[in-house]
Design a protein around this nucleic acid. Structure first.
Lengths: 163, 163
DNA sequence: GCATATGGTTCACACTATGAATGAACAAAC
DNA sequence: GTTTGTTCATTCATAGTGTGAACCATATGC
């Protein structure tokens, strides 16, 4: 972006007051910080390094995962995944099995202990998000959610330029 | 939290549909990821480690800072700050001076080069936030901002419990 | 069979972060 | 005016996050 971005904004041709930009910047910074602190807290609470925690959550939707797939989903290089997997295997959260069809591939799956940990984490996450939502009145909640959708769309549109 | 949190939600006594919780969880995750990717991008773009970049921005509001003050603002331990400062001094972005009043404390201030870098970064940040806002229609924008305020308040209220 | 793609691991490196120990400088108290 | 305790900063050991290059084993395509 930036090279294209600096010259002119794209959509609306009305000017945006700078106090709105400041307000927005502050809000985003604050929300981002909240999320980071939650991650920190989770890591402490579940006694798992952040990366292992995030990796564990990938198994919520998939029964089997490969290092390659994990690398893609987590957006890290494969050597990094090897390390994360090592840690989780050492903690007996997941197990490695060779793919019978293609023995280059290792299949990862949760151990019972890993499944328990995942359930714990998901329960925590749900309850924390529920708690945040329950701070708002029902109508307010709807408004917040739909405006977040708008924000998400806008941020993703801009992200495309940021390469 | 959690111990108190599990039993019952606090404010509204109406039930929150689980699809709303899911939606919310997804939105937050996505926004968080966007912010992280922006950080990454910034770090690459300005050829500065993330921590130094964040530290540099503290000088936007303050002419002089101490390691202790930075540790507090950045929410890290002071030994970590020493390292960050070392890097920034090596890059000639900031300089160390002894406080004439109390020679235990070191005063940090931007070099001209550091000031330039900071200006660059601030310009970038403003333009990116402006770009996001300009994706929305004026009325939409107002709505998003005010709903973000609500969200911020809710998240901070919950954060208090998360100790 | 042989070249080559692919999947995974190992290794060396750099950044983020903490906590314990150390040393220098100040502030009082005796 | 030395001792005692406090505060500020640094150093060091340790752990976690992440990359990229080199490597090995296993497929797959001529």
């Amino acid at each position: 972006m930036v090279h294209t971005m600096n010259e002119q904004t794209t959509q609306s041709n009305d000017t945006i007051p700078s106090y709105q930009v400041d307000q927005f910047q502050g809000l985003i910074a604050k929300l981002f910080q909240c999320c980071q602190e939650r991650m920190q807290y989770q890591s402490d609470r579940f006694k798992l390094p952040d990366a292992e925690l995030r990796c564990l959550q990938l198994f919520a939707h998939e029964r089997y995962l490969t290092p390659k797939g994990i690398a893609h989903k987590m957006n890290v290089v494969k050597s990094r995944v090897t390390k994360i997997i090592d840690g989780m295997v050492r903690r007996k959260l997941i197990q490695r099995v060779k793919d019978p069809e293609d023995s280059r591939i290792t299949l990862l799956s949760l151990t019972p202990k890993g499944q328990d940990k995942l359930n714990e984490i998901n329960y925590f996450l749900e309850s924390i998000h529920l708690e945040v939502l329950s701070q708002m009145a029902p109508e307010q909640r709807k408004a917040v959610l739909s405006n977040l959708e708008v924000l998400k769309a806008s941020m993703e549109a801009v992200k495309e330029l940021m390469v």
